[in-house]
Computed example of a mutant assay.
Amino acid sequence: MDEKKIMCIGLVCLDIISVVDKYPEEDTDTRCLSQRWQRGGNASNSCTVLSLLGARCAFMGSLAAGQVANNLPDVTAENFKTVDLSDYKWIHVEARNANEQVKMIKRIEQYNDMMAAGQKITVSVEIEKTRDDLYQLFSYGDVVFVSKDVARKFGFNSPSEALKGLYSKVKKGAILICAWAEKGADGLCSDNKIVHSDAFPPEKIVDTLGAGDTFNASVIFALSNGKSLQEALTFGCKTAGKKCGLHGYDGIV
């Protein structure tokens, strides 16, 4: 029997990346050295990285008929009813339309209630945007990724502060993770012991777009393969650091 898959639910979009010799000053014209178009979006990027790492994975989101489109609808709970949950071992949700996503996760919880321990689906949630309506998702993930921006919105100035201050919002037994760019990443689970990994920056930083999505995917990949939280954070930071030294994702593994 084939191994069950990891699904990422959220945004896919078009990223247009212009390469210049230095960061442009305000109100100035700058000649572009090169430009590329690539598929982007948090959930889409994480799915790309999971695939490159060797995971069987799937993406769920709104796709356009052509290369460019605006204001595509988010996935709804009604859309999610078409998913055969028995195909998946892990479902990752990028917080967007939270009210619908809560319904989707509740469907997964109902499914898990009927399954043996080893057959339950792990749910991870990424809370990146500083929007109050998204914060209800803190209590619905087995693994919750909270961004530096959200941590700062709550008044925290380091990943360890954020984890201590926000852990009461997650459900019992959940893992809360906060990455903080050059400060690395911290994780906290029910044993109240904060786990830390330093950052692993490349010799030269060339492209940080999608570094956070790379970190999330790498942590999910490690945890889904039975690695410890410490091992997962270190792997996530190493892979995200390697990505920052590359244009796009080719060569990440």
Rank of each mutant, 00 (worst) to 15 (best):
A98N: 14
L50C: 08
G212R: 12
K183P: 13
R36V: 03
D27T: 10
I108M: 09
E109D: 10
C57A: 03
V68G: 09
V150N: 02
V20H: 15
L33E: 13
K183F: 07
E25N: 13
I9R: 12
L246I: 05
A58R: 11
S34D: 04
A65P: 13
E94Q: 14
I91K: 05
L52P: 14
E26N: 05
G155H: 02
M114T: 06
V253L: 04
I16F: 01
K148D: 02
S124W: 09
P201D: 03
K89V: 00
Q136L: 11
N225Q: 05
V12S: 07
H196R: 13
D191Y: 08
A55E: 09
A95D: 10
N112S: 00
R56I: 02
F235T: 04
C32P: 11
I105R: 15
C8K: 10
Y167T: 12
I205P: 13
C8T: 09
V146D: 00
D250H: 04
E128V: 06
D84W: 01
N45C: 10
G212V: 15
G210K: 07
M104V: 09
V93W: 03
A211P: 07
A65C: 11
S44M: 03
A65M: 06
S197K: 07
V20E: 14
M1S: 08
D132C: 04
K5Y: 08
Q101A: 08
T28S: 04
A179D: 11
S139W: 00
A95Q: 09
P159C: 06
K120H: 01
F235E: 11
C189L: 01
M104E: 13
G226K: 01
V19P: 15
V75G: 09
D74Y: 13
K183T: 02
V150A: 10
C57S: 07
K238F: 03
V253W: 00
A65G: 15
P73G: 14
R131V: 00
K243L: 13
N79E: 00
Q101P: 08
D113E: 07
A64M: 14
D213K: 12
I17Y: 03
H92V: 00
M114F: 13
V170D: 01
I121T: 01
K153Q: 06
Y167F: 11
N42F: 09
E182R: 10
